[in-house]
Design a protein around this nucleic acid. Structure first.
Lengths: 361, 361
DNA sequence: AACTTCAACTAAAACGTTTTCGATAAATTT
DNA sequence: AAATTTATCGAAAACGTTTTAGTTGAAGTT
């Protein structure tokens, strides 16, 4: 075709001389231009099929580019366009089924839209969250999706988020959010999830309904506890602080569980996560009690454990994947049409009760 | 100090005029240079504390930079240095405990070394793997860490990997690897893990030892099946194909499980993953048989399910986090000292048997 | 013949850095 | 006093693109 043998030959010589190892170095517009005796701009336009360029040169350039497998350099394009096509995701923990599920939703949607995802794990630490965020904010990404670390929620310091949004970088918070931050959010109705679970217990005739939870500074735990209390009061069942077992960390202490169940007589347990629920169930079963006959269990987060426990754990599904997709959708919308009017939405997803063997039905 | 009020004032005016919204736009070297009446190179050097620059201008520049929170643009630096400080991770599935664990190891090590991680999920698809890889290879990353998708292993086509390595981009494969690819690898000794598990069964007096596995084109399954067979033969127990239950996909068919256990009398089961094992245990328990008295179970991948099953599932731990750290270490070493001699290592980790209630001890 | 129009192409700036090679003036040496 | 050194600083290229604003020569118009 339009490629002369001499041209191709010269090119190969040049490139095999540069390195003695057989490295196929990436080719650039400049190389194509030089070999074909045209300017860089012509090559750039020819590859975009611009009307400005004659059809014969377009063919020559395109053939050459294909032959040498030219692919534009992402970094150069990012610098020029001030658009990286990357989105930053900061989550407290990657080895956590719910976050992983959300991440899958984000990744799926983002990828379909041509975005890549850079993940940073805050490890529940405020400092790491700040460091990671500042690092990514310096040009590496076009927007953030994140769930606050517990360290940040405890410290209640959101200056790093404010700085980012003030720079005009879009931010979407999911699951672990904070009132004071002006940005888009996507959460599930945790309060309602707990409310519905407790209501189900009561309909099933349960009277002494316990709650296993973590410390209140985690926004979701707080919401769930509120729903628990509300359902009890709405149904004329007293709210009794003694029926709340609060773990100070994610480290489960079997002693606390034992003390609690020895002290309090309960016939139903709502847990803010799977792990606490499974531990409770194991303890109850080890005491020879039957689930759900003697005690019912419902746990938040419909993960693997709920599904494969014996009996299966009735769960409040949080629709993580959907949450991730929505977060990504909102973010990319903001990135691509960065309108000046600052309007923020909060999408609230409805939780679903997945009934299994740990409750009667 | 060296900042005059007028300077700062002018600057603020300029920036608040540019946008009517209160956007704190990122400041660049050029801005600092203009405001301070020096050249860009001087600013650049001053910020690096270069000896070339007089101490008073250094102070002026540094103070100004600090005041306006100057941070260098990562993209520009990447373009200049041809180093992104990003590593690309491609895994088949993120909602999978083992991969997640490896990812954590990668992220932890990479972050400590100042690298960010871009994750792409191949979804077990050859095409997605290729697309993602080519996308990232165009300048977005300094190296790859990946586990092959099942689609790729089935197709047995590794040209996308070859292209990347031929371009001089370092690649580390983990867990799901292939012989033919010339690159660094980190795997666990799957064969030995299976061998040890079966040996334990035999020591416990088991005779009819079943294997639940997936199709052979998954490299790890193949290795595990080999270890299973080897242990049987080494101990003078016949290798019987009828005792192998092979699932065609990750979708579990309860019928296949039922047929299998109805047809074959077994007293021990080795499973190539947790899920298959848990399903087997549930079926056995539903038939009123006792674990481990009537049937023992051991499963690969020491994940959440093994830990929380009843009884706990004795598991072959794959040390995912360690695997991730090692992969990242090898990769970053290759990135930072890209020596010309191409030598590739394969690190083989030893599996560990975690004994729980599903086996006797 | 002088003009406009058009097709086809190029130069150069820009994105934000880093770095090499000067340039200038002051300080030091001879 | 002339020559040399030293301390500070700046111009410009480079990384690989995109895009604006030309430039050129040929064709068409009056």
């Amino acid at each position: 075709m339009y490629l002369t043998n001499t041209n191709a030959f010269v090119f190969l010589i040049v490139y095999s001389l540069e390195k003695n190892s057989p490295l196929k170095r990436k080719i650039t517009l400049k190389h194509i231009a030089r070999e074909l005796g045209v300017s860089i701009s012509t090559v750039s336009k020819a590859l975009k099929n611009s009307e400005e360029i004659g059809s014969d040169t377009k063919e020559r350039v395109q053939a050459f580019a294909k032959l040498y497998n030219y692919k534009p350099n992402n970094i150069a394009i990012s610098l020029k366009n001030k658009r990286t096509k990357n989105i930053g995701v900061i989550i407290p923990d990657i080895v956590h089924h719910f976050f992983t599920t959300v991440f899958r939703g984000i990744e799926k949607y983002a990828n379909a839209k041509g975005y890549n995802v850079i993940v940073c794990v805050s490890d529940e630490s405020f400092d790491k969250e700040v460091i990671n965020m500042e690092l990514l904010a310096n040009g590496s990404i076009d927007g953030f999706i994140m769930a606050l670390s517990s360290g940040t929620q405890l410290k209640n310091d959101y200056n790093h988020l404010k700085e980012v949004t003030e720079q005009g970088i879009p931010l979407v918070l999911f699951d672990r959010v904070a009132e004071d931050i002006l940005c888009d959010k996507v959460i599930i109705n945790d309060r309602k999830g707990a409310y519905n679970a407790v209501t189900k217990f009561i309909k099933d005739g349960r009277k002494r309904i316990a709650l296993i939870t973590s410390e209140d500074y985690i926004s979701v735990s707080r919401e769930r506890a509120a729903g628990y209390k509300e359902a009890l009061l709405d149904n004329g069942i007293g709210y009794n602080e003694d029926l709340i077992l609060k773990f100070p960390s994610m480290e489960i202490s079997e002693n606390l569980i034992e003390d609690f169940f020895e002290r309090e007589k309960v016939d139903a347990v709502l847990s803010v996560n799977e792990i606490f629920a499974i531990h409770g169930m194991r303890y109850i079963q080890s005491k020879g009690l039957k689930i759900p006959k003697d005690i019912s269990f419902i746990g938040f987060t419909d993960g693997l454990l709920s599904k494969y426990a014996s009996p299966g754990l009735t769960a409040i599904a949080q629709h993580g994947e959907q949450m991730g997709e929505i977060a990504a959708e909102i973010l990319i919308e903001k990135i691509e049409n960065d309108m000046e009017e600052e309007t923020y939405v909060t999408r609230v997803l409805e939780p679903t009760l997945i009934e299994r063997g740990s409750t009667v039905n």
